[in-house]
Amino acid sequence: MEQLNYSVLCLPEDIRARGVEDIPGYYYRDDGMQIWGVVECFVSEMIGIYYLSDESVRDDSELQAWVWEIFSEGFLGRESSGVPSSLGTREALIQYVTMVIFTCSVKHSAVGTGQFDFSTWMPNMPATMQLPPPTSKGQASLERFLATLPPVNATCDIIITLWVLSKEPGDRRPLGTYPDEHFTEAAPCWSIAAFQSRLAQISRDIQERNQGLELPYTYLDPPIIENSVSI
């Protein structure tokens, strides 16, 4: 929590800060940036409908209370986090809402969806460690490595848990799917339809690219990204 900051949660800033803009084959970045862009466009359109000026953002007491609660309760009031305690412009609101949507849907899918795939090879994600990590070179022998790995029963418990969590839920709601229909006016409905169309194009692009990959990257294909955290 002491290291978590606002820029880490905003993908374009995070990519720049980590210096990974030009690394080839970094599909989380490539797919994530595309989706960040269409989410940001969607959010911008929706906010443009309901907030006609920066003043209307500042005057929305419920919005400001929501932002303050996240800052004070979620980030313990740490100003060093860079997380805003209030929002004064439509531009700031667009970035903030884009960050929330992206974190709860896209980033969650990137982190969670592949857990079973990678964790079934136990050394990738051991359930426990029987010895502390090496503190100097020369300690990482094969014998020490094997002695560090968890017992079989602990590994099986984790794999079974991840297998259950990896099963597709029967009530999946992909990103951009809103069956509750909270917005019924023409303008937001148009924006929702445009958002869904842009996501569908990204999905087609990802599937076409994956056909040429020895190990396809599927975790940010929009149809498998849920609207919000599902576990």
Rank of each mutant, 00 (worst) to 15 (best):
M1D: 10
E2P: 04
Q3R: 13
L4N: 08
L4I: 13
Y6C: 08
S7F: 07
L9N: 03
L9C: 10
L9M: 12
L9Q: 06
I15Q: 11
R16E: 12
R18D: 03
E21W: 03
I23R: 11
Y28G: 15
G32R: 05
M33C: 10
Q34S: 13
G37T: 01
V38R: 02
C41M: 09
F42R: 09
V43N: 04
S44Q: 01
E45I: 00
E45C: 02
M46P: 02
D54K: 00
E55Q: 10
E55S: 06
S56H: 04
R58I: 00
R58D: 00
D59M: 03
S61T: 04
A65N: 06
A65I: 02
W68Y: 09
E69R: 14
I70K: 03
I70F: 02
I70N: 05
S72N: 13
R78G: 05
S81C: 09
V83Y: 15
P84K: 08
S85T: 01
S85Q: 10
S85F: 07
A92F: 00
I94Q: 00
Y96M: 05
T98A: 05
I101V: 15
T103F: 04
C104D: 06
V106M: 04
K107N: 15
A110T: 01
A110Y: 03
G112F: 03
T113G: 12
F116N: 07
D117G: 02
F118G: 14
S119C: 15
W121V: 06
M122D: 07
P123Y: 13
N124C: 05
P126V: 07
A127F: 02
Q130L: 13
P134C: 15
A140K: 04
L149N: 13
P150E: 14
V152L: 13
V152E: 10
V152I: 11
A154R: 15
D157N: 07
I159P: 04
I160G: 01
T161E: 13
L165D: 11
E168P: 01
P169N: 09
G170V: 07
G176Q: 07
Y178E: 08
H182W: 12
F183T: 05
F183M: 12
E185F: 06
E185I: 02
E185L: 11
A187I: 05
I192C: 08
F195L: 09
S197P: 02
L199N: 05
Q201Y: 04
S203A: 15
R204P: 03
D205K: 13
D205V: 11
E208H: 11
R209M: 05
R209V: 05
N210E: 06
G212E: 08
G212A: 12
L215Y: 08
Y217A: 15
P223L: 10
E226V: 02
V229S: 02
V229P: 00
